[in-house]
Write a protein that binds this DNA or RNA. Structure first.
Lengths: 232, 232
DNA sequence: CTGGCTCACTGGACTAGCCTCTTAGACAGT
DNA sequence: ACTGTCTAAGAGGCTAGTCCAGTGAGCCAG
């Protein structure tokens, strides 16, 4: 057979042992009512209880450490990080990824701010990138396309013009969530022309270096797009 | 010598091998111009090149997988995820952690929004948590402390009251940055009482379910704290 | 040309062992 | 009695070697 599994929406499951261990340890932490600062059982002990080797347990602990759930200290043991909330957050995310409204909300928060910053800080170069994105989008729409590529370029250009790498990182983070929840297919406004018009409004405010107007225009744009999304 | 390193403010860093490997592999990906979809060298090969055992390399790969940089497939190899951005993001983070203003800016953006949402959505339980945080902070300040624990609790309570797991995640992300850039030592306002007062103002707005007032109060609070931070 | 088989290669996991670090408690010296 | 030093048990860190289980290219018979 070919790649049925690959193109399928549901990955047929990944039998990585360490992932199961992460779940089990998370469950154990919850059931044992462990508080931040408490120690997990010793590796040798835990490995035996879970019926795996220390090497595999070590992988699970690395995963938990990267996730921010624990802090492994040489000679002492694995102590729970002060934020067990992260654990539940991460877990909750994997379970019900149906938080579309929340994601739209977060995106809105960031992009409105980014638009305002872009208006303050944009260089002529940034402006050129924004204009280029608008041109691409107009071209695509003219060809009967939805203009998604141009749309993406536009938001990237705005993000770039804001000159804040930290906010840019947060946007990248959200962009990933959007992809992973397969929301990208929702991002199709009913009227591309309308979307293009609101983009132009944002661009104009950025060009005029008017932060308040840029923020308002971005907010209006996102509300427009979100409305369409919710119609589905 | 004894434990000179331990009592220092600077954690002498824990030389976990797998963390170094993550850095090295990230650097390799960049230098080798690998694109999404490309494969990393085989584990046995890579382990030998880096001079570590396969077990340790496996830990590094788990970390990279959790970070979303690669996707390890049994029988095929470790393929780069479609978003190498994360890699550069993580790397960029570790390198120039001197973007304090940007971090403050991002934090401000998120917390102002969180405050407004909290005002809209807070339950009586959320309110109780907020009040409790204020009590803790007042107590700490009364004892001559700086009230940092109560401060932390307060911001957590606000975040919780906003009922947005996505925004909460972004806050956790930033909180980590703040910790890692050792900004926590900067978070000592000259006048804890002043900080407490502005916290009370935020709490009042949230209690009154007035989003605009909550946002304004949070913005004022952050500007106050930031000013003090920048004085150093 | 097609289908099935094989085999080399990839990751997955385990075992056994040795190293370093941490810490509590015994044991000196004051 | 108090205090500082030393030691040993137990914690995690890492390695080497071994075997198991998918993957896929290539061979070969039908």
């Amino acid at each position: 057979m070919e790649k049925t599994a690959r193109l399928g929406l549901e990955r047929v499951a990944r039998p990585r042992l360490y992932e199961q261990l992460v779940e089990q340890i998370l469950a154990y932490i919850e059931s044992a009512q462990l508080k931040p600062g408490d120690l997990l059982p010793a590796e040798r002990d835990l490995a035996e209880r879970l019926g795996v080797s220390r090497a595999t347990l070590a992988q699970a602990l690395v995963a938990l450490e990267v996730l921010g759930v624990i802090d492994v200290q040489h000679g002492t043991g694995a102590v729970l990080a002060r934020r067990p909330s992260v654990a539940s957050v991460v877990k909750g995310l994997r379970e019900h990824q149906s938080r579309l409204p929340e994601i739209v909300e977060a995106r809105s928060t960031l992009e409105v701010k980014l638009a305002a910053l872009a208006a303050e800080r944009r260089t002529d170069q940034d402006l050129a990138a924004i204009d280029n994105a608008l041109d691409v989008m107009a071209q695509e729409i003219g060809d009967g396309d939805r203009g998604t590529h141009g749309d993406e370029l536009f938001h990237q250009a705005i993000t770039g013009a804001a000159h804040s790498s930290v906010l840019a990182q947060l946007m990248a983070f959200i962009a990933e969530m959007i992809l992973e929840t397969r929301m990208e297919s929702l991002g199709q406004p009913g009227r591309p022309e309308q979307s293009l018009a609101s983009h132009r409004k944002i661009a104009a405010a950025v060009r005029a270096q008017d932060p308040a107007a840029a923020a308002d225009a971005m907010l209006a744009h996102i509300e427009l797009v979100s409305d369409v999304e919710l119609l589905r």
